[in-house]
Amino acid sequence: MNGGLRVSRRIYAVFVLPSLLVYLLLVFFPILTSVYFSMLNWSGIGKAKYIGIENFVNLFTKDKVFWTSLKNTFLIVGYSLIELPITLLVAILVNRHVRRSNFLISVYFIPIIMSSVVVGQLWKAIYNPVSQGGMLNKILISTGLESWTKAWIADPSTAIYALIIVGMWQVFGYYVLLYFTAIRGIPDELFEAARIDGAEGLKADLHITLPLVGYVIKISTILMVVGALKAFDIVLVMTGGGPAHRTEVISSYMYNMSFISLKYGYGSALSTVLVLLCLIATVIMNRAFKRFD
C-alpha cells in the first residue's frame, strides 16, 4: 500500500462481505446440500432414507448409463480442446488479413447470443432426414453422395458427434473474440521491432503473440473445459439424451434422474460427481499452466 488509497482490512471486509454472502448462499450452500442429498434414497417428496454412499456405489459399479454419459462428457471436452487452437489461429489470421475484422468477429459471435433452444432447432433442421427436410442430407443427395445420408442425430453411430459439432459451432465465436481482443492488446511496436529483427508471420506469432496471449489461453482453456463438462442444453433440446441414452451427458442424466425418474438422491450423487470433476479439472489445469507462467 504505497500511496494511493489506504484501505484497512475492515473496510475490505465490509465491501467484500455482501457478495461473499450471496456467493456462499447461492453457490456453496447448494453444493453442500446436494452432497448431503446424494446420500439419501429420496424421490424429492416426502420421507427420505439415509443410505450413506450406496448411490455412489451403484453409480460406479452397476450403472452402465453413467459410464456412457461420462464417456460422452469427456468426448465433448476432448473435441473442445481441439477447437481452442483453431479459434486462436482464426483470431490471428482475421487480425492480420481482414480489414474490417470487427464486423467478422461480430458475426462469429452471433451464435453465442442465440438461445440454445433456437440453436438446437436450427441444427435439427440441418440434421433431419430428407423426408423432414434435412438440409445436410439434401446437399449430400444433390452432390451424388446419397449413400452417406443418415438420420444424423437419431443414428447411434453419429448422434453424439453431431451434437458435439453443434456445441463447437455455438461457442466458436466466443473464443475467437477472446483471442482477438487479446491480440489487439499487444502493442504494435513489438511486431515492428520483431520485423526489424527478421521475425514475421508465423515466427512472430510463435515468439510474440503466443507468449503475450498466454493468460487468455489459460483462462479460455479453463472456461472451455468446465463449459464442456457442464454441457446440457443442446443435448436436451436436440435428443433428450436419446436414442436410448446414447447421447446422455452427466448433466442431462442428472436432470432425467432427478426430475423424470424422480430419484432425487441419485441425481444429487450425479451432480456431486460433476462438481468434483469440474473441481479436479480446474486444479489440474491451474497446475499445468503454472509451469508456463
Binding site: G242, P243, H245, R246, S261
Partner: peptide, 19 residues
C-alpha cells in the same frame, strides 16, 4: 409402475427403434 421403472422401460423400448 413408479416413475423410475417406467422411464427405464421406455428407454429400453426407445433402443428398439434404433436396433
Amino acid at each position: 409402475l413408479n416413475a423410475a421403472t417406467s422411464e427405464s422401460h421406455n428407454k429400453t423400448l426407445q433402443n428398439l427403434f434404433v436396433d
